[in-house]
Design a protein around this nucleic acid. Structure first.
Length: 458
RNA sequence: GGCGUCGUACCCAAGUGGUCUAAGGGAUCGGUUUGCAAAACCGCUAUUCGCCGGUUCGAAUCCGGCCGACGCCUCCA
């Protein structure tokens, strides 16, 4: 039985989907105004891990990730660069997709864009107006009245009386019934340029929170299973989403809220001035592989802050190497086809099912690796055991995605290896060692085993 | 000020009332193996879980205080 820590109850709860065997999943996507950084991808990798675990445990997952392509930041960028909003957002959406693919993140079923769903948002706002949960201010904007929803603050246990008043009061926030009321529809301002839609409340654009409500409901229905995001989205974003969704539909909204913790770099927030601000492409430039990035991030529990440092690459590299090493040993041993797994898979699954305890799952897996290596050393592994082991490794990787694909070896390396073979036959150790160094300098590791030379990439 | 998370070996990191004299990984050193290496395996590295009290037959795990780190309350994942 899968259990997840539900942010609503702050407890681990048994996961029971609304429809048996199927999971409706909504994850907050990027605002496409700039390159996404490694912190953003901590969350996307957590969500990918969640999805992979659900799939591995036999669930059919229907996954929606929105693209926020209209908001203050995108509009500002478009103005600053003097380009149409759509040009900016499609450029950064493409970059985002490239990063997702590069990091082996399984694609969502649909990536709805906010600008394609303004109609749905207007309907929701209308419903809120009709039911008295929303009101229009003097300048034409529409706000949600948090006092109209008695359970407001359930997610973050927010104490409205004690909340610190924002120092800043924007023009469209004049005339609010309650300073914490949030915008559903923002009336048109000159700086919005040509970004506007017509609505029953005049020309304008939607507020941020309403887009997730509209798009999740459009694809997943009023009531669905899981909604994820980073912790910083709990308030106000998710709190507001819950309020407006429930008030608009009079239906329960989301059963299970999962939030991933922050990624820190050098123990603090990333900042461009400190030079510790990394985009995915920056890390690739520094020689990180996608698998190493995944390993570093996934080897820490999603509700624990992860401190990203460049020196963790080595740890990741070694861990991955250890797994690949065993995979090669098993494949070399020979196999007898079987669909079974080693018994250790039970402990592995138990860890995953206990609120995605990846570190524990890794511990179980590495324990098994040691046991299996010992058995191999003692010639105590059958071909069937070997096949089971390979199945386990494949299953492991279907969840973690940290094993690189087979890499072809260039011909010049193969030539050096056969030259070395010749030298070894003649016990010309000096030449053999020299060739080993040369091969090493070209990015490959050669090992001498009882079965001859073995090549692997560094 | 309000809300919240966290502090476990040299480093990373699980565990959250007894099976904990605390998993797993990385690193170091020693050993087996090897032409030498590499890989693999074995051993060493926390009687202790930020500090101080308390509850309990029993606490890393619960409660209180203190110290320290971090986050949200500003359309930042």
């Amino acid at each position: 039985m899968l259990r997840f820590h539900n942010s609503l109850s702050r407890k681990k709860e048994d996961f029971i989907p609304l429809e048996k065997g199927k999971v409706k999943l909504y994850t907050c996507g990027p605002t496409v105004y700039d390159k996404a950084h490694i912190g953003n991808f901590r969350t996307f990798l957590f969500e990918d891990f969640l999805k992979r675990v659900l799939v591995a445990r036999g669930f059919e997952v229907f996954h929606i990730m929105n693209i926020t392509d209209v908001d203050d930041k995108t509009i500002k960028k478009s103005k600053d660069e003097g380009k149409p909003l759509s040009e900016i957002t499609s450029y950064y959406t493409d970059l985002f997709n490239k990063d997702l693919t590069a990091l082996k993140i399984l694609p969502a079923d649909v990536y709805p864009a906010a600008t394609d769903h303004v109609g749905g948002m207007i309907k929701l706002i209308q419903s809120l107006m009709d039911k008295g949960h929303a009101y229009q201010t003097g300048d034409g904007s529409v706000f949600f009245s948090i006092e109209s929803y008695k359970d407001y603050g359930a997610l973050t246990k927010i104490n409205l009386a004690g909340i610190q008043q924002s120092q800043r009061v924007e023009s469209d926030e004049y005339g609010l019934d309650n300073p914490q009321d949030f915008a559903l529809w923002k009336t048109y301002k000159d700086e919005d340029g040509d970004v506007s839609w017509d609505s029953p409340w005049g020309k304008g654009r939607p507020g941020w929170h309403i887009e997730c409500s509209a798009m999740s409901m459009e694809y997943l229905g009023d009531h669905f299973d899981v909604h994820c995001g980073g912790v910083d989205n709990k308030f106000p974003h998710h709190e507001n989403e819950i309020a407006q969704s429930i008030c608009a539909t009079d239906s329960p909204f989301v059963n299970m809220w999962l939030h991933s913790e922050f990624l820190l770099v050098d123990r603090g927030k990333m900042s461009k001035s400190l030079g510790n601000f990394y985009c995915v492409s920056d890390l690739f430039d520094k020689g990180f592989s996608a698998e190493e990035i995944r390993y570093i991030i996934l080897s820490v529990h999603y509700r624990t802050k992860v401190n990203f440092t460049l020196d963790k690459q080595h740890e990741a590299k070694m861990g991955i190497q250890r797994i690949l090493e065993l995979r090669t040993r098993l494949a070399d041993l020979g196999t007898e086809p079987t669909a079974d797994f080693p018994n250790e898979i039970d402990g592995f699954n138990a860890a995953l099912e206990d609120d995605l305890d990846a570190p524990n799952a890794l511990a179980v897996f590495f324990d098994w690796i040691r046991t299996t290596n010992t058995a191999l050393d003692n010639n105590k592994l059958s071909n069937e055991d070997s096949a089971k082991g390979l199945n386990f490794i494949a299953y492991f990787d279907s969840v973690f995605g940290v094993l690189p694909g087979e890499q072809s070896v260039p011909q010049d390396i193969l030539d050096l290896v056969s030259e070395r073979e010749e030298a070894r036959k003649n016990k010309n150790w000096a030449k053999s060692d020299k060739l080993r160094d040369l091969i090493n300098s070209k990015g490959f590791i050669v090992k001498d085993t009882s079965g001859g030379q073995k090549l692997s990439s560094k």
